Amino acid sequence: MFAMKPYKIPESVLVVIHTADLQVLLIERADKPGFWQSVTGSLDAVGEPLLAAATRELFEETGIVADGQQIVLRDWQLSNIYTIYPVWRHRYAPGVTENTEHVFSVQVPRETEVKLSPREHVNYLWLPYLEAADRCFSASNAEAILQLRGQVGHTDT
């Protein structure tokens, strides 16, 4: 007999990975070729701390370790509520149609090695933040990337 996979928790994290000069890392979904995004993932358990979820998802999807010293996740204290795409609603309990997404960012050196989880993503690329926002399939992800410049206090020099 097969055990039923538990439903996903409709609360997630979004982690925008960027360099000092606002190059943004995008990853292509394995289950939807052509769908580019930042790191995203649902909480593993109700009550999982958001920073722990963001740290876990960052590592699981890219191999990047947020060590809290050189690679530091930044909690934007920003949440988005969005409608779950119908293609993915079967992962959630019946009647669940919305997800609350908590936004984080992390600045990494450009030469940071990226190790994708092949089960989740098949390709990655670095793009200037405006181009990255245009490439994202998710409106909330694109909006977070557009807010990146202001969130990290980047100014042209």
Score class of each variant (00 low, 15 high):
F35W: 15
V15C: 08
P10T: 11
F2P: 15
E101D: 11
G95T: 08
A53K: 09
S105N: 13
N123C: 04
V15M: 09
Y7M: 07
T155V: 13
D67S: 07
W76F: 12
E61A: 08
M1F: 13
E120N: 10
E131K: 14
A144P: 07
S117F: 01
L43G: 01
N99K: 11
V122N: 05
Y129Q: 06
Q37L: 05
S140P: 01
Q151T: 01
E48H: 02
A54L: 03
V87Y: 09
D75C: 03
D44Y: 08
E48K: 04
A53Y: 05
V15S: 08
A133E: 04
P10M: 12
A133Y: 04
T112G: 00
D44C: 06
L148W: 02
Y124P: 01
P118D: 06
Q107C: 14
L26E: 01
V13H: 11
V24W: 07
L50Y: 14
S138A: 14
Q77S: 10
V106G: 03
F35L: 13
P109I: 09
F35K: 09
L22F: 11
A139K: 14
Q23M: 15
V108N: 02
H18W: 07
A52R: 14
R119P: 00
F35A: 11
D31M: 12
V106L: 08
N99G: 01
E60D: 13
V16R: 06
L26G: 03
S105R: 01
V15N: 07
I17W: 01
R56P: 09
M1K: 14
E57K: 13
P94A: 14
F104A: 01
P118Q: 10
T100W: 04
D134W: 02
S140A: 05
A66F: 07
R149W: 00
F59T: 08
F59V: 03
A54R: 03
L58G: 05
S12H: 10
N99R: 05
K32C: 08
E28W: 07
A45P: 00
T157E: 07
T62M: 03
N123I: 01
R74P: 00
V72K: 14
R149Y: 01
G68W: 10
A52N: 14
L73V: 07
D75S: 06
R29P: 01
R89L: 08
T155W: 12
A93T: 05
R29G: 02
C136E: 02
G47V: 10
A54C: 02
S12P: 08
P49K: 12
A3G: 05
L125K: 12
E143V: 03
S105W: 06
